[in-house]
Write a protein that binds this DNA or RNA. Structure first.
Lengths: 213, 213
DNA sequence: CCTTGTAGGCGTACGGCGTACTCCTACGAG
DNA sequence: CTCGTAGGAGTACGCCGTACGCCTACAAGG
């Protein structure tokens, strides 16, 4: 204890949280592709290599950003029917991630080994269990939900119907793909949140339909 | 015509297809993160900058790879009930992409403006239309399917239950997340193809349940 | 108060990347 | 045979992540 103090000639001047906040500031200001060890160090007013006193590598820096964003994930247990609870849980993730859209790619690759996400997953599995899902059927139900969420997030980020790709598809001529063209046009009128809820409703209807009594 | 020939002092020695094949060879041999203009040029036996005679930039090179992989997407119209047809169409994409798992990230970001994917989407939309889906409900149904597919592909690629992340999760202790631990263990026994079909079945059950008569 | 060991901070440098620019040259057309 | 064109290649620039080594501010022990 006294030894630990003795072995600290100069106290640390930065915390992981402060570093993550700086990285998030860079991302929110100039986009994910401007994130680099150099830009974050500059944001903190320190030399590039000084960052490595606090962070193993870029990988860990990204993890810190994801952790920070997911701090806003509401951990309270929702109530209502099991389907209502799954909906609430799903929308909480969407809300947390949606607050910083540019970090979606980081979220997708770093979401594992984040304790908030794990607690969230445990809550989802608990809800499914109470609904009567078990064993393989529960695994498939859970993983299907995750797949939908992951796909919905990346679609909102860089999908063909929202984001830069939308413009291309929404203006394509009726031939040779009339349904695709019409779909792209109609899709522009649907708010992302509504579409997300719609897909979730379909999925939950499917889960309910395949749920044994 | 004669002018076009006149204006070609040296004939092109490479085709887009040959370039894409070289890039795919690099990816399949050493992984996606070894793909670079330099490695592809080396694979072709030409100088790095010579590649730019055939390709606008790295972006287009990646597009060519995706195009090549998706050439194996079966274009035939499937038959059976509408749910059976959607299943066949979904598994065709999975088969085409699954033949080169390392290109999944490229597929996710370059799938738009690929004509095979567009034709595939038109076929899916046609099937949904015949099943009675129209307007906004058809858009949501379509997009939900896409989201599930995209999510399933990336999950299979770098998900927590398959790939390197699996090991971490599958060996986590029962506390404090017992359901998560059990799910990870069970998930390892389920073949990816079976899980994919299971999720698809859930989704289609949901679509059928929400489909108006 | 002064010495001393430790750890924070930083500058340099290396090997990678994508690609702009410029030069050389092989070749088909006349 | 000449000539214009376009293919091919080398060099170089500004990025990136990060290994390495130096300098120095500081808290503890005397």
């Amino acid at each position: 204890m006294a030894y630990a103090v003795k072995a600290m000639p100069r106290p640390k001047s930065l915390t992981h949280e402060r570093i993550a906040a700086a990285a998030l500031a860079v991302i929110d200001r100039a986009g994910l592709d401007t994130l680099s060890m150099r830009t974050v160090a500059q944001e903190l007013g320190i030399g590039t290599m000084s960052l490595y006193r606090y962070v193993e590598d870029r990988e860990q820096l990204e993890q810190l950003v994801v952790d920070l964003v997911l701090n806003d994930l509401d951990p309270a247990r929702p109530d209502g029917s099991w389907t209502e609870r799954v909906i609430v849980l799903a929308e909480r993730v969407r809300d947390a991630v949606g607050a910083h859209p540019a970090v979606v790619p980081l979220f997708l690759s770093h979401r594992h080994r984040n304790r908030h996400v794990m607690a969230w997953g445990e809550a989802v599995l608990g809800t499914l269990t109470e609904a009567g899902f078990a064993d393989r059927r529960r695994v498939v139900a859970f993983r299907t939900l995750i797949s939908y969420l992951v796909g919905a997030f990346s679609a909102e980020q860089l999908g063909p119907l929202s984001g830069p790709g939308t413009i291309v598809l929404a203006e394509l001529p009726p031939t040779p793909f009339p349904l695709l063209a019409e779909t792209a046009r109609t899709a522009r009128e649907i708010p992302a949140a509504e579409e997300f809820r719609g897909g979730l409703a379909i999925l939950l209807a499917g889960l309910a339909a395949t749920n044994p009594p």
